[in-house]
Design a protein around this nucleic acid. Structure first.
Lengths: 195, 195
DNA sequence: CGCCGGACTAAGCGCTTGCTTACCATCGCT
DNA sequence: AGCGATGGTAAGCAAGCGCTTAGTCCGGCG
């Protein structure tokens, strides 16, 4: 899959942003190519100047969104050397991301079924990397004795749930800012691990 | 995708089950009325013998699913008199439900945007009751001193996230049975509240 | 200047969609 | 026997869908 990092793509960028917002709000199948084009201020045919199909547009958004999450998770792990520090930072960054980037996060987490088999496989590999990174921090903390949980892998899954589900319910202008959510979720994550 | 029709069920019931499964798997807009009818072993027109529109079929499923969740939450609160007991039971029942009923739960939680304004309002009232019940148990536990959390309402939201997100990722035949998830999530919920 | 290539559009093709219409079969009831 | 209610079907309409075609516009360059 080519990265498609095209420099002078103003129309293309507007299309991508419009598509992400529409897919997040109404879902891939609830969005027409005419919706996307209109929201980007372009004609319906303009979608096909920049993307081979509606599904490839979704795949590009999903791929990019997943890569950003993976990078953020790996960064959090690399930023510390003890599991408490690593997992605290991870939970915080993960939560903040799913709040601030809730539009992208909704496409990433709730439109997987609309991807072609090939694209879904590609994206699944990234998801497994993300899940493995979280699982590894939890397992390492348990092994070292700073975490305590009867089932490390299930707790790791629950930690991911906590962050991901923010994309479903969190809204800007609501009761909690991204920073407030992030700080609180760090505490929750460590409490879940008995740290 | 051929129909595995249970002839003991009447047409209307087969339609409802087929619709729930299709909406859960591919989303409301990704499902055609012909898909639903075929999965129920009926002709396309049969959908309109039992429902006025595709959206009303979704609304019926959503309404019924929400009522079942609300009943389960209220039951858990009524089953105990101290907040630790109540919230433990609630977390356990909530998790078990979102695993065993993950098909219905996915329609309930991820297809709200496809509802008409009127139906969404009706369903929102039920959702607020569910959220309020959880919030109240957490608040009461904090007031009594058996729970400890810097932001009870945000923790209540996180508790809901934990259960709801199960509908997204949990699959039968996976690593964890509904009972295993339920037992573990009781422990996680109480840990999040410092109980 | 001429002309090439990329961004973009007007028009529309062929198919699929939600839903309707007109009709039929079965059953309990008077 | 006759009848209405119930639950179903075959056929198809109008609208909307993803995507294509044929072309315009325009900046950069030899």
């Amino acid at each position: 899959m080519t990265a498609a990092v095209n420099p002078a793509e103003r129309g293309g960028e507007r299309l991508a942003r419009a598509a992400a917002e529409a897919f997040a709000a109404r879902g891939f199948h609830g969005t027409t190519t005419r919706d996307v084009a209109a929201a980007a201020g372009l004609s319906p045919a303009a979608v096909y100047v920049h993307h081979r199909s509606k599904e490839e547009l979704l795949a590009a958004l999903s791929f990019e969104g997943h890569r950003r999450v993976l990078a953020l998770v790996l960064d959090a792990v690399a930023a510390g050397d003890d599991p408490v520090e690593q997992l605290g930072g991870l939970a915080e960054a993960f939560a903040r991301h799913h709040a601030t980037e809730h539009v992208s996060a909704r496409v990433v987490n709730y439109e997987l079924a609309a991807l072609s088999e090939a694209h879904r496989a590609e994206v699944s590999a990234l998801r497994h990397e993300i899940e493995a990174a979280v699982r590894d921090v939890v397992r390492r903390g348990v092994a070292v004795g700073v975490f305590s949980t009867p089932d490390p892998d299930l707790t790791a899954a629950a930690l991911l749930s906590l962050g991901i589900d923010l994309a479903r319910w969190w809204r800007p202008g609501g009761r909690w800012s991204p920073d407030e959510v992030a700080a609180h979720y760090r505490g929750l994550a460590l409490a879940m691990l008995g740290a």
